[in-house]
Nucleic acid binder design. Structure first.
Lengths: 149, 149
DNA sequence: TATCATGTAACTTATGATATTACATGAACA
DNA sequence: TGTTCATGTAATATCATAAGTTACATGATA
């Protein structure tokens, strides 16, 4: 994966689960994501604790959605992932002993806050259901995932 | 340094140079930044190519500003640093072979673009001179840099 | 009870940012 | 003119973190 793509990756996985009509194994999901099943389990384990998915062991087991796509937003998923850092740039330190640095921080922090707030606001506007609808508009005759299983 | 803090660090260095009335050595700047002189030289070398600073070798040498603080904005410095990535999160891949992933990307990219644009717009609104004025409002009797040389 | 799938700890790898070393170049000064 | 100071820069080392992998335990189903 490139950079921190957890949110993007998780949404991908969730949409695939939404399309399936039964449990999907971490192995299947891992192939779609071109990663390792353990990585999938690790990520989904966090979402399960918060009620977004559930898992079953054994034959016929795997992962399923357990939330209402109409009420869960991208922001909810973002938070469920632990609210990872949004910005790649930031201040060198938040408690400098240097007045010059404090001045720089103060000025930049406002810009950082605003940009973050905008992004999160956009995330709040989109539900998983809307994302799924958007997918179906595009989905015509093709397979969900071309190029890999 | 924490995360990608080049811009914040560079602004710190530039303001210190603005306060000095002669050339400042990379060793002095490095102490202020709690880093290595070579790191300072590497970063400032890029800015020098674009006319923001200049350097002199030998006795009495060091680094000086060579731009008009009133016209140079934070955005200019950001660009001079090579326009580093702003967002820590992003899409797994921009050219997926999977329609699900394409849908996710499309929806998220708009939010990413807007947030980036907002941040850069804010950077464009602030000149180095304004940053310096803000510093002087705060600067009363204290040393520029307490806690280290 | 054999198989399948998750649960999870421990470990390995890959990557990128940062720091360091070492030495060359060139300017100022005595 | 040679000593000192400071930059210029290549090469290397260190560090942190994300991602991937292995190994094995747990539990469900057939």
């Amino acid at each position: 994966m490139i950079r921190d793509s957890k949110l993007s990756g998780v949404l991908h996985v969730l949409l695939h689960m939404a399309e399936a009509d039964g449990p999907v194994t971490s192995e299947t999901l891992a192939k779609m994501m071109q990663t390792n099943p353990v990585v999938i389990r690790r990520i989904l384990a966090g979402l399960r604790e918060q009620g977004y998915v559930n898992s079953e062991k054994g034959h016929g087991g795997g992962w399923q959605l357990s939330c209402d796509l109409n009420t869960v937003t991208l922001h909810d998923i973002y938070v469920a992932l632990g609210s990872p850092a949004i910005l790649a740039i930031g201040n060198r330190t938040e408690s400098p002993g240097c007045l010059v640095e404090e001045a720089v921080n103060t000025v930049m922090n406002q810009a950082f806050r605003d940009a973050e707030a905008l992004l999160l606001a956009r995330f709040s506007e989109v539900t998983l259901a809307e994302l799924s609808r958007y997918l179906h508009q595009r989905l015509q005759n093709a397979d969900f995932c071309r190029g890999h299983d």
